[in-house]
Each structure stands twice: as C-alpha cells, then as structure tokens.
Amino acid sequence: MKRKIGLSVFPGWKEIKDEQIQVMRKARELGFSEIFMGIGPGTHWRTGIKDAFEIAKEILKEANRLDYYTFVDINPEILKELNSSPKNLSRFLEVGFRGVRADYGFSKEEIVEMSKQVIVELNPFEISVDELDYVTKFSNPERIKATHNYYPILYSGISKEVFLEKTKLFKERGIEIGAFISNPKFNLRTTLEILRFTEPFDSTNYLFNFVDRVLIGDPIPDEKTLRQVANVANSEITKIRITLYNDAFKDFINKVFHVENYREYAVVCYTKDSGNVTSQCYTKIFKNAVTVRGRELWIFTKDLGIGPYTLIGEIDDINLEILRMSKSVTFMDKK
C-alpha cells in the first residue's frame, strides 16, 4: 500500500487562512494528498462552529482543485450546530468534504448510516472490538478508515504499547489507519508522546512502520518540515539518520546495509558493496555509538569497555528503534 501523507488545517484561525492555503499548495507539489480539518471549539476558541464552517468552504475550493482527500472532525454537538445528523450529512458533501471523522458520541448503527453517504474515519479510542466488527460487516470497506487522536497538551500523548494495540485491530481488518506527528514550530498535536519533540523526518519514519498514513497535526508547517515528511514517504528504502563525526565516512554510510538483530550488545549492519574502511583502532564503546569494523557498521546498545572498532558517530534512540525494525537501510548524516 502506497504511503500517504497529509496535513491539518484549522479554518477557525482566520488570521492564518491565506497562509494555510499557501501551505496546501506547496504540500501538494511535494506529494501530500490528505487534509484533516478541525472546526470545533477545541481547535480554535475565537471562532464559532458555524463561522469556521463557512471559512472551511473557501479553503475547500482550493483543496478540491488540488485533488486532496479532505475529512473533518465531527461529534453530535457539531452536527447539531450545523443542522445535520448521521442520517443527513449533505451539508458536508455540498461544500466538498470527502470524509468525516467520527470523533465521539456515535453508535455503531449511526457510523454505518454515515458510511452510506461519505467516507467515515473511525477514532480508535471511541470504538470497541465488537462495534468495529459490526461496522466492517455492514459497511462498504472502501468507506471506512481510521485516524488516531492527537494530544496537544505536553505529556498527554499515548504510549507506544497502547498505540500498537489499537492500531493492530484496524490493520487486521484491512482498514487504512493514520496518526499525527507534531510540527517543530509548535510541538503540540502528536499521537505518540515519545515523538512530540522528534524531527519530522524521524517521526514520519517511525510511524510508517505501523500506519499507512502520517499527518502533520500542527498547522502551517514550514517547507523544511514538508520536505522531510515527503522525503520519507517517497523513499524506497529506510533512511537512518545519525550524527556523523567525520565527513570522510559519508560515502561509506550511504551504501545499502542489511540489518542483523541477534547480537548481545549491538545491531550489526553489513553491506555487500566493496570498499572496506581500512582504518581500525580501539575505542571506548558507549550506548548509541556508531562504529565501523571492515564492511560492517556496529551500533551499540549498551555502555561497554574498549573494543577494536572505529568510532564514526552516534545515533539517537528513535533512529535506533527504527533501525531495529528494519531489514535493509541506508544511513545519512543529520547535519
């Protein structure tokens, strides 16, 4: 399944409307194909739901011209405010939304009813296994997707264990599922707490081991963030970022490496390409050290003693975890 990337737009922030449209245009050029919209009071406190919906109409004209898949967060209060109901979502379709995200407050029967009209994005924390099975049984599978919540308050994001548990339920049923990463400008709207302050390249790289879709949760990401996310989505091989101490090793780490995970103290990556690193010395081994031995990269997972390896850099915990989940990789310098 092709990796899909998206961004978030909040119509109620009238002061950044034009900037959000400009970001949409740039993101589309880079391969972004999805837009999540929030129109409820939880996304902006200065604009009411009806006013936010009207502004959304203007943004949707451009989003649909650019052929984005757009979906909007809904709950019973939002539907009531907009004179809509699970049996009548025509107002959302008329302005150009292609999907709705059933955030909370809907029964399994109402979700099935909504799916007859539009794509429904499920909230993994608001649906039980039995309800999910009911929805998949009585709905067109092409009309059902899922997107995790984002958690804007510091320390409020979910754990990896819960994330995997919830995600697995949808993957087992063949349902596309997405999750959010934060934007370094804000570091707020992330699904996983461990990724809150992680660079977009790395958080995207991490999430694509588990989900089909990655969306930037915070608004108006800069071009660097957009390019990092697009770089991961468009890459045919996993790229592991390290901090390289010596530029002389840049060509060596850019080779394709195969990953071995069975060593006691290290993840070992070997390449079949020619060109051994001949310089060999003894170095003090520390956790997350990136070293070379022959045609192999040894990335250590524990503080140890002195060993016969050439130290060339270090790796952070997130990239180390991505590496351990990979079979073939190439490395790149963070700088």
Rank of each mutant, 00 (worst) to 15 (best):
residue 28 R to N: 10
residue 30 L to C: 08
residue 30 L to M: 15
residue 31 G to K: 03
residue 31 G to N: 05
residue 33 S to D: 08
residue 35 I to L: 08
residue 36 F to D: 01
residue 37 M to R: 00
residue 39 I to K: 00
residue 40 G to I: 07
residue 40 G to Y: 04
residue 41 P to C: 09
residue 41 P to W: 06
residue 44 H to Y: 15
residue 44 H to C: 13
residue 45 W to P: 03
residue 45 W to V: 14
residue 45 W to A: 12
residue 45 W to L: 12
residue 46 R to E: 15
residue 46 R to W: 11
residue 47 T to A: 10
residue 48 G to E: 01
residue 49 I to L: 06
residue 49 I to N: 03
residue 51 D to H: 07
residue 51 D to W: 03
residue 51 D to M: 11
residue 53 F to W: 03
residue 55 I to M: 11
residue 56 A to C: 10
residue 56 A to E: 00
residue 56 A to Q: 01
residue 56 A to T: 09
residue 57 K to C: 09
residue 59 I to L: 06
residue 61 K to E: 14
residue 62 E to Q: 09
residue 62 E to S: 11
residue 63 A to D: 02
residue 63 A to R: 00
residue 63 A to K: 02
residue 65 R to P: 02
residue 66 L to T: 09
residue 69 Y to N: 06
residue 71 F to R: 02
residue 71 F to T: 00
residue 72 V to R: 00
residue 72 V to H: 03
residue 72 V to A: 06
residue 73 D to M: 14
residue 75 N to F: 07
residue 75 N to H: 12
residue 78 I to Q: 02
residue 78 I to S: 01
residue 79 L to K: 00
residue 79 L to C: 07
residue 79 L to Q: 01
residue 80 K to F: 14
residue 80 K to Y: 12
residue 81 E to V: 14
residue 82 L to F: 08
residue 82 L to T: 05
residue 83 N to I: 08
residue 85 S to K: 09
residue 85 S to I: 09
residue 85 S to E: 07
residue 86 P to F: 11
residue 87 K to H: 14
residue 87 K to P: 04
residue 88 N to D: 15
residue 89 L to R: 02
residue 89 L to Y: 05
residue 89 L to G: 03
residue 90 S to Y: 11
residue 91 R to F: 11
residue 91 R to T: 15
residue 91 R to V: 15
residue 92 F to C: 04
residue 95 V to I: 15
residue 96 G to W: 03
residue 97 F to L: 11
residue 97 F to A: 07
residue 97 F to N: 00
residue 99 G to E: 00
residue 101 R to V: 13
residue 101 R to H: 09
residue 102 A to Y: 05
residue 103 D to S: 10
residue 104 Y to N: 11
residue 104 Y to K: 05
residue 105 G to A: 10
residue 106 F to A: 03
residue 106 F to T: 04
residue 106 F to Y: 07
residue 106 F to Q: 02
residue 108 K to S: 15
residue 110 E to A: 11
residue 110 E to S: 13
residue 111 I to G: 02
